[in-house]
Design a protein around this nucleic acid. Structure first.
Lengths: 155, 155
DNA sequence: CTCTGTGCAAACACTTTGCAGCTAA
DNA sequence: TTAGCTGCAAAGTGTTTGCACAGAG
């Protein structure tokens, strides 16, 4: 199912806010007005905003807030498990001239990208409602984790 | 299968180079020494390099080459179908605090990201050799294309 | 009171653009 | 010859860092 025009109701928002406050305390992070505002703003949208987009929204209600705080807080949210960084984002572009079907595994420590080819991933079926609504140009199965070399180094 | 320490043999490299020259002619693109060098360099590595990484390698043999040429040429290679931009790259980071399993579709025209949830994508089986070698932290199925709104606008 | 978090400014990394001269076809 | 490509420089965009002050705990 495609989720559209998502709006969280206020009860849900308060519940999530409570959860977030608990999570902060648990991790020894301070509950500042900015952190709350950023988290709540992110809860309220389904736009997968960038830091810049959030900053523009937030400064309407919090004129003093700065873009770096938004940036830093989003990273904090990600680290504490309260937000995801959406795939397809960040870092600089990386190129590849292997035009055969294949997939990538990226090590989040050393940033190395490994090719692999797993036949079943070539053939995954797209959900029909998506396929009908949008024109799909590329489908990607993408794995992230820690590579064998970095795993060894940790021990 | 995982592809490692990939080195192309010179016969293969020449064959691909011929193919590339043909492809350039076909598209009315000039075969310049820089283009050839960049394409051949990309063929020779499995490192999925960034423009910067390629530039540093290439300037050893072509001291005059500039980083913008590398950047522009990589885009050209991508447009002519001789190279891919590896997923997980480019643009600014985008955030999401929906922590439930779900997938994303991104419109390459308007950059809007749509959530959807297709149960079978949650359950895709990892290839056992990958799973054994690396510690997989995240698996992602990610679709790109043109959304319904942008499709309409084109007509 | 203490120590984390914030705002500001500057630095940084990466990409894009305009332009003049060069070169493949 | 000439359209397209390159190199240079500058500007643009997004992110990170150092530091002093403010405010949560």
């Amino acid at each position: 199912m495609i989720k559209e025009n998502y709006t969280i109701n206020s009860a849900e928002l308060e519940k999530k806010t409570e959860w977030f406050i608990g999570k902060c305390r648990e991790k020894g992070l301070k509950v500042t007005p900015q952190r709350l505002a950023i988290y709540r703003e992110l809860m309220k949208t389904d736009e997968h905003p960038s830091a810049e987009m959030m900053y523009n929204k937030l400064r309407q209600d919090y004129p003093g807030i700065s873009l770096d705080t938004v940036n830093r807080t989003l990273i904090t949210l990600h680290e504490m498990g309260a937000a995801n960084i959406v795939e397809g984002s960040g870092d600089s572009k990386r190129y590849d001239c292997n035009m055969d079907e294949h997939q990538h595994f990226k090590c989040i420590k050393c940033k190395k990208i490994y090719d692999f080819h797993h036949k079943p991933f070539d053939d995954i079926k797209l959900p029909p409602n998506i396929n009908k609504k949008f024109k799909i140009l590329r489908k990607t199965v993408y794995l992230e984790g820690i590579c064998d070399i970095c795993l060894e180094e940790n021990e």
